[in-house]
């Protein structure tokens, strides 16, 4: 665990010390802020804070489809490209510790990407609104979970190749597919609807943004996160042994 923490600190520092990370954070804040100001907030009259939170949360998830692969594309592929992966895998740390540390660092930055969302509710409160903080908390909780799953997918995509652009592209496809595949299934495929409904990450976030935390959704997110991290670990292991 200690080794994982040391690795995590190293990864986080590396990410924070990269100007690209802050450009990404700035772009995501600008994106979210602009959408919230010009699309979510009505043009006149009164805005429904609950609806605004719901819309803002969905924008924050959709934004991650693009930003998470960009954030995670370097995680493993850069180490592979530069050859530092050989040093890392021969060091006295397990593959799972490497992946876990890289994931945790990327996840922290991912939280930064959408972390401004509760601030908008705070601004609304300061300007005379009365936001319901329960749904705000639930939305943040769901974004944490969804962010973890998407970051794990990004790390997995990065572990597949040493080409960063290819890793970003694979990550983009996987995150988009993971979020939207349950909705692309035709309505008359009724047998798949029930199965896919429980794995609809977007729906889980929508529900949370209304103020509901569902233990089934949290379990799903934890399992999917663990599964993709395991895939990433195995992908690293395959490279070592095969």
């Amino acid at each position: 665990m200690n080794r994982t923490l040391i690795l995590f600190r190293r990864e986080l520092l590396a990410l924070m010390a990269a100007p690209g990370t802050w450009v990404l954070v700035g772009l995501s804040w600008l994106w979210l802020g602009a959408l919230y100001r010009w699309q979510v907030l009505p043009s006149a009259g009164h805005g429904d804070l609950q609806y605004m939170l719901w819309q803002g949360t969905l924008h924050a998830v959709n934004m991650q489809i693009l930003f998470v692969p960009l954030l995670t594309m370097r995680c493993v592929s850069e180490e592979k490209r530069s050859g530092t992966i050989e040093m890392l895998v021969t060091a006295p740390v397990g593959d799972h510790e490497i992946i876990l540390a890289k994931f945790a660092a990327a996840w922290v930055v991912n939280i930064l990407l959408w972390g401004v969302l509760p601030l908008y509710s705070l601004i609304a409160q300061q300007t005379g609104g009365d936001p319901d903080w329960g749904p705000v908390f639930a939305a943040c909780f769901a974004l944490l979970g969804a962010g973890a799953v998407l970051t794990a997918i990004g790390v997995f995509a990065s572990s597949l190749t040493q080409n960063q652009l290819l890793a970003a592209f694979i990550g983009l496809l996987l995150t988009f597919g993971f979020l939207y595949a349950p909705r692309l299934v035709p309505a008359d495929w009724t047998w798949t609807q029930g199965v896919l409904a429980s794995g609809d990450l977007l729906r889980q976030v929508e529900e949370a943004a209304r103020g509901i935390i569902d233990v089934v959704a949290v379990t799903f997110q934890i399992c999917m996160c663990a599964l993709f991290l395991l895939f990433a670990t195995r992908s690293l292991e395959v490279r070592k042994w095969a």
Partner: peptide, 9 residues
Amino acid sequence: PRLVSVAAL
């Protein structure tokens, strides 16, 4: 409904 004035926000 929890409303907020657009002009103020």
